[in-house]
């Protein structure tokens, strides 16, 4: 049921751990977003600026989780917004803008990785051997200093997260950092719900296993 013209399902299912927060604020936010997107579709430069500011940290974080190199994430960040400008006219206003934005970013990131570090991409999820992977750090260059410092700050959890294969990293970041609903994640990844659930479960299990192996018996916080 669409209360406000066309953003998608009216989400009444409040999952226990997701915490949508104050309902009123949630709907205010959605209405504002709708307005901005509509103006963007009309070519409004300020709307573009507003949306960019609103999503700048989240988008960058997502890209950084995917490519793991800040310089590359920065470049992809710029490319993503260029794509937004190019493709906004074809954007169906009924769709979820956030999911579309993250999908654009994801496609650019994957094309980029395919060109630069094809070995860092995973096998298709259906392949049973696909998910077993060694630590996937960039193999052909020294990590730049910003990368090292960022990893220090992220701590052990962040470092362990980086060793996961891409498909697992991204599902974790979308669920826990972006706090996206399952349906949104499925839309971004263009995968069925069951696949997303399985990846999520496996990702958590693997992350825990990595932490317990690397820091046996200690707290990894």
């Amino acid at each position: 049921m669409d209360m406000i013209g066309g953003t998608g399902s009216f989400r009444l299912k409040m999952h226990s751990a997701t915490g949508l927060g104050d309902s009123a604020a949630y709907w205010e936010g959605r209405v504002a977003l709708e307005g901005d997107v509509a103006r963007l579709r009309g070519g409004d430069l300020d709307a573009l600026s507003t949306l960019l500011t609103r999503y700048q940290n989240r988008l960058y974080r997502y890209l950084l989780r995917l490519v793991r190199e800040p310089a590359e994430a920065e470049d992809l960040f710029q490319q993503t917004w260029l794509r937004v400008a190019e493709k906004i006219r074809q954007f169906d206003p009924q769709r979820n803008f956030e999911a579309w934005l993250f999908t654009l970013a994801r496609n650019l990131a994957i094309d980029h990785l395919r060109r630069i570090r094809p070995e860092s991409l995973d096998q298709p999820a259906g392949d049973p051997t696909g998910e077993t992977a060694a630590a996937r750090l960039p193999s052909h260059e020294r990590p730049p200093i910003e990368g090292i410092l960022a990893r220090e700050r992220a701590g052990r959890l962040g470092t362990a997260l980086e060793t996961l294969p891409l498909t697992q990293r991204e599902v974790l970041t979308l669920r826990f950092e972006e706090e996206m609903k399952l349906e949104e994640i499925a839309e971004v990844l263009d995968a069925p719900l069951s696949t997303v659930k399985t990846r999520l479960r496996r990702a958590l299990e693997r992350l825990r296993m990595t932490l317990e192996t690397q820091y046996p018996g200690e707290s990894w916080q």
């Binding site: 430069l45 960019l52 960040f77 710029q78 917004w81 260029l82 400008a85 006219r89």
Partner: peptide
């Protein structure tokens, strides 16, 4: 980076 992205995206948008 953010500002450059903003400027370039705005130029592209107005071009389109």
């Amino acid at each position: 980076v953010v500002e450059r992205a903003r400027a370039q995206a705005q130029i592209r948008l107005s071009e389109e």
